[in-house]
Amino acid sequence: MKNRRPLFTVAALWFGFAFLYVPIFVLIAYSFNDSRLVSLWGGFSLRWYGELLRDRQIVDAALLSLRIAVISATVSTLLGTLAAIALTRMGRFRGRLLLGGMIAAPLVMPEIVTGLSLLLLFVSMQDLLGWPSKRGATTIMLSHITFCMAYVAVIVQSRLAIMDGALEEAAMDLGGRPFRVAVDITLPLIAPAMLSGWLLAFTLSLDDLVITSFVSGPGSSTLPMVIFSKVRLGVTPDVNALATIIVAVVGLGVLVAGWLMLRQDRLAAGETPIRAYA
């Protein structure tokens, strides 16, 4: 038994990765295809990227999507962080377990259900309160905040859970009032988690289709909605180019978020055990 590679494991690994990434690589490759026919290679070209920029519908949708993503990521990061702090730092209150479970529920809720229930809510709110007066960017943002908040809360909560509560107590003992302690100690220590939560929320908002379709109105089509409707008429090369850009943006977001989380885990692991007499 020498250093024999477990052939099966390696094969399984490669198969898995191929399964995940071959479609994406095919898509990226065809976005540089000069030919109009999707399945025929006509040489390398950037013409479809240029074509994209001239398509008003796509550019408008992209700008709308970005605006929604930035705002809903920001708001959901704030709300999610507050929820996480309440759940981990308020001690044991009645219903804490229930609330903790409920905040994470949107993570596993089928999107159809979330979308439908939000739509019903907006319709009845419109009837009763007159607000939101129409479905569009606002309702999309509210919906995105709803489900993104859950992700942020879970990420920040896991950071707070491994953070030594004595740090905040020490700051309070040294004369810091609760608000100062939150600013001086809690915030800097959970900032990486908040940033990775923001990035995750941003990418989730950017590519959501199902929930968005339920709550959007006329004249407010997000990028995924435009792509989806275009593709139904047949795959065109400019959609490939657009999808490639989205893959790049989302990939970057996930990469940075992952890196941040890895770093904070290392930081947390390095600071908890007290190294004796080095």
Partner: peptide, 12 residues
Amino acid sequence: NIMFQSYAVFPH
């Protein structure tokens, strides 16, 4: 003032 068993030195 209190000195904690874990020291609770602010890591940042």
